[in-house]
């Protein structure tokens, strides 16, 4: 396993808890609405080739939330500041679910932040013929059930989701959920401006979706692919909303191929 460190990056007075490890050119990972799952197999594999920066978003986990940060575009603005603080520019990025939405907003907002954009089961655009599942009105257990096509094929499922949370972990999960509500309540999980703004994006982009995604429908991947010039869409069979956890080998293969 690649060694990683934990550090608090000070962004204009806001401390951002960041996992960092590996070597090579920088790669930014942006987690989804549930929070940072830690240094899983897929992150480790990416760190073999790249220096991975894996922050917990402001308001999530141990990261602070500045009072003004209340929307996903606010979050995107914050991350341009985060990258600037770290002296990073033109980095590769992978955004997962809500983190994919953040990555798209950054790419549309600030042309020099990223050199490559990969979106995995990304929220942010409104599907026309289906719906993004409302994860706030159902229980966390129901959300988890919808996230996986077949939990048995996810090698780290037990390690990540199999044990009962401690009271502190339960409180942290509730706090993460509250932050997601703050950011994504209305319009739910999308930004009506985004498809217009994404026409500005000219860096290489790849969408990766589980074919059986029951949270963010594949249709959203198709919309992203149609909107971002020159991008492609990789659909993984027998896979739900989190390919990086459910089918890590397929995910790592397509990610490394794209990032190279």
């Amino acid at each position: 396993m690649v060694a990683f460190t934990e550090e608090m990056v000070d962004v204009g007075g806001t401390k951002v808890h960041t996992l960092k490890g590996g070597s090579g050119e920088p790669l930014l990972l942006l987690h989804g609405a549930g929070g940072n799952n830690g240094w899983l197999k897929s992150v480790d594999a990416l760190a073999e080739k790249y220096t991975v920066y894996y922050p917990s978003h402001p308001g999530y986990g141990k990261s602070e939330r500045p009072d003004w940060l209340e929307t996903i575009p606010d979050m995107a603005c914050f991350y341009t500041w985060y990258l600037e603080t770290l002296g990073l520019e033109g980095v590769r990025t992978i955004g997962f679910s809500m983190g994919g939405w953040i990555a798209s907003e950054i790419a549309a907002m600030c042309g020099h932040s990223f050199s490559k954009l990969m979106l995995v089961g990304a929220a942010g655009v409104k599907p026309n013929n289906s719906e993004i599942t409302d994860i706030f009105i159902i229980s966390p257990a129901q959300v988890l059930d919808l996230m996986f096509h077949d939990p048995a094929q996810a090698p780290e499922y037990q390690a990540v989701y199999g044990k009962d949370p401690t009271p502190e972990e339960a409180m942290a999960a509730e706090s993460n959920r509250e932050m997601a509500v703050r950011l994504c309540w209305k319009p739910y999980m999308h930004d009506p401006r985004l498809t217009s703004l994404l026409k500005r994006v000219s860096i290489p982009a790849r969408m990766v979706w589980g074919k059986n995604d029951r949270i963010v429908p594949v249709e959203c991947g198709e919309i992203y692919q149609r909107t971002i010039k020159g991008s492609d869409l990789v659909v993984i069979d027998n896979c739900g909303h989190s390919p990086q956890v459910e089918r890590p080998d397929d995910f790592i293969k397509t990610a490394l191929e794209f990032l190279a």
Binding site: S139, V181, R182
Partner: peptide, 14 residues
């Protein structure tokens, strides 16, 4: 009703 109906995330303080 489901818990989420009565207590949407963020409605109650800790």
């Amino acid at each position: 009703g489901p818990r989420e109906y009565w207590a949407p995330p963020g409605y109650f303080s800790q």
